[in-house]
């Protein structure tokens, strides 16, 4: 059967399935680093972006954060990656590091906006209550507002992580052997693109599904004590 032959050539011959597994490992590695970096950068950028001075105008830190979010959201990820690889980190050989940095910085800009949405959806009364209890602005933020904000952000954050996972396939442009590149390598040897590409798609889907299920459980736990 032709399908069986194609399947054999795409996955089993020469132990080619190991290429996919290795590629998947690298994809997940880059995604995790980029996601953590993005979360950190995004939270900081968001809080700075929302900061206003005594007179109600933006502080310098706030302006810097705003420019960061604006520019990173306004340019394509591939161009950011190429600039990071060919210009900024021009002497680095570590593709995983460069890719994680580029995707992390990119993700941070989007996460900043997601968290801003989450914070602004928390009732204004929470800040007033915290302040009238004697907590400072920062203390209220950290202990009262942000925990509630994160819960509101969860669906959007999951979206962002899923996008990040699939976006890492761009890194094949600098030679990083992620899952998509592994499928490309196999299909360039067998001249039959269908099986490798379908196999890679199935693997991506399994990872995304697992992420969704785990996030769903966490979200459910967080909502347990709500009466909505």
């Amino acid at each position: 059967m032709d399908i069986a032959n194609q399947f054999f050539k795409a996955f089993i011959k020469d132990g080619r399935w190991q290429l996919y597994v290795k590629g998947l490992g690298i994809t997940i590695e880059v995604t995790i680093f980029a996601a953590l970096l993005g979360l950190l950068l995004g939270t900081i950028a968001c809080l700075l972006n929302m900061q206003r001075g005594r007179t109600g105008k933006r502080t310098i830190a706030s302006r810097i954060a705003f420019i960061y979010i604006d520019i990173i959201r306004g340019t394509p990820t591939l161009i950011q990656l190429m600039i990071m690889w060919n210009v900024i980190m021009v002497s680095s050989k570590n593709k995983i590091l460069v890719a994680s940095l580029a995707f992390g910085i990119n993700s941070g800009a989007y996460v900043a906006e997601i968290i801003r949405g989450g914070i602004q959806s928390v009732d204004a009364g929470q800040m007033e209550a915290g302040r009238s209890l004697g907590l400072s602005r920062i203390q209220t933020m950290m202990n009262v507002i942000l925990p509630q904000a994160f819960k509101n952000c969860f669906p959007s954050l999951l979206n962002e992580f899923i996008t990040l996972l699939k976006e890492t396939s761009i890194a094949s442009a600098v030679g990083l052997v992620d899952l998509t590149h592994a499928a490309d390598l196999v299909s360039s040897k067998t001249y039959q693109p269908m099986m490798p590409l379908l196999g890679a798609a199935v693997m991506y889907f399994i990872v995304v599904k697992t992420l969704s299920v785990v996030f769903g459980k966490v979200e459910k736990r967080l909502r347990e004590s709500d009466n909505r």
Binding site: N86, S91, S92, K93, S172, A173, V174, G175, H181
Partner: peptide
């Protein structure tokens, strides 16, 4: 073995020492 889609990128990497 680093395989890329474009010889331009491979040679650029060589010039940059990667």
């Amino acid at each position: 073995i680093v395989s890329v889609k474009s010889f331009n990128q491979a040679v650029l990497d060589l010039v940059n020492g990667k």
